[in-house]
Design a protein around this nucleic acid. Structure first.
Lengths: 214, 214
DNA sequence: CGGTATTGTGTACACCGTCCACATAAATTT
DNA sequence: AAATTTATGTGGACGGTGTACACAATACCG
């Protein structure tokens, strides 16, 4: 017999869509158990392929992880955009701007709590710092999470809620606060908070950011 | 011959102080390259001992990592206390309280930038959530970093800078902001900032927290 | 149709954490 | 002081990991 061993479960020698399947498996592992769970051999196992096959599509395990990380960032961007889409186009620009910034924060925190594995993966620190797949980590708007926050702050300036002089760098301050709370909620002392309590403290935090930025 | 092989480099069969040496080696690895670098076999290698010897002092690699994490938290607490000690005991309580909160934030950020490996290790998420070595992670004051922040906020209330009603949970908000900025600075987009620029944005962040908390 | 580039396979290596049985030395009991 | 128990380090093994290298099978292109 020419073919036996384990279980080919695939008639053709070529897989056809291995890259995508490997990435999908990686994302699934990350979702279930965070970045450390993205192990190359398990990914290939799920794709029904030998471990080394992955090296035809990813330079290393770290390269695969980077791809998964981009996907996680894209998912976060989509979650934020979904929250932004719920903002009703009211009359007063100030209120709309406020609602949008709030939506960014809420989307961020919601995602962290709903998908902690992906969230941690999105912010894992990989070997080489610079990113090439810039647009693999964006949502429908073409903006990544950080840029979505920046856009919301721009509207704050337009609405007169934030002095133009204070705009540069403001996204770092706002992002710090929201991201910090997210890590507290998924890994830190606020781990056991339920959704309601999270929303409450999230609101307080966003209030602090709004009041404090100006 | 009874003894040969590699190099015992130790005459006595017993080591004498292995637990401490293993922990020290683990801390050194964490300092140099973060939590993932705390690998059990390397730690024992540095102690001149066979890998399994570690299991007489730590239940697992994760247990060792937890000990290193406690040490890292203690180091952070010490850094904060050092900054607090520089606060001059001025006349006005309000000014002192402000300076102390500022010192906590600055100590936190300084430590993150000066010892990124230890900082990341201090906040690594380990398997079992609860901590037993509660006082292995404190500074000279007996307080851990989080509690030091809480104490600073208490003084804020005493000084009338923070309404009593807003005190509960305030440490979560302040901590979120500072910790978020720290991660931005060591792993995120602000990675390349020099000390001066870090101090500047740190000041802005702390200003936001002060203004926003009230 | 025949050569060539692409993609998956097989084998092998070094490293990791951890289990088990065993050896040695210190502590304790007799 | 001798005997026994307990603490600590050793040796060897197993299954897991990432990845390098040579090879095989297919798709593609002239």
């Amino acid at each position: 017999m020419t073919t036996a061993k384990s279980s080919p479960r695939r008639s053709t020698y070529r897989h056809g869509d291995l890259q995508r399947v490997l990435l999908a498996a990686g994302i699934e592992l990350a979702r279930a158990a965070g970045p450390d769970a993205v192990v190359l051999r398990e990914v290939t196992r799920r794709a029904g392929v030998v471990p080394n096959a992955a090296y035809r599509h990813f330079a290393s395990r770290d390269d695969l992880l980077r791809a998964v990380r981009s996907a996680a960032l894209a998912a976060l961007a989509l979650a934020i955009e979904a929250e932004l889409a719920r903002v009703r186009p009211g009359k007063r620009v100030a209120e709309v701007a406020r609602a949008k910034l709030h939506a960014v924060g809420v989307g961020y925190l919601r995602f962290a709590q709903a998908e902690p594995g992906l969230f941690r993966t999105a912010f894992v620190v990989t070997d080489d710092t610079e990113v090439k797949e810039r647009d693999a980590m964006t949502g429908n708007s073409g903006l990544n999470p950080f840029e979505l926050l920046g856009a919301a702050l721009d509207e704050f300036v337009v609405a007169g809620l934030l002095a133009k002089a204070k705009r540069p760098g403001a996204e770092y301050l706002a992002w710090s606060a929201v991201h910090g709370l997210a890590t507290l909620v998924i890994d830190g002392p606020l781990r056991r908070l339920d959704r309601r309590a999270t929303v409450r403290i999230g609101d307080r935090l966003l209030e602090m950011v709004e009041k404090g930025l100006g």
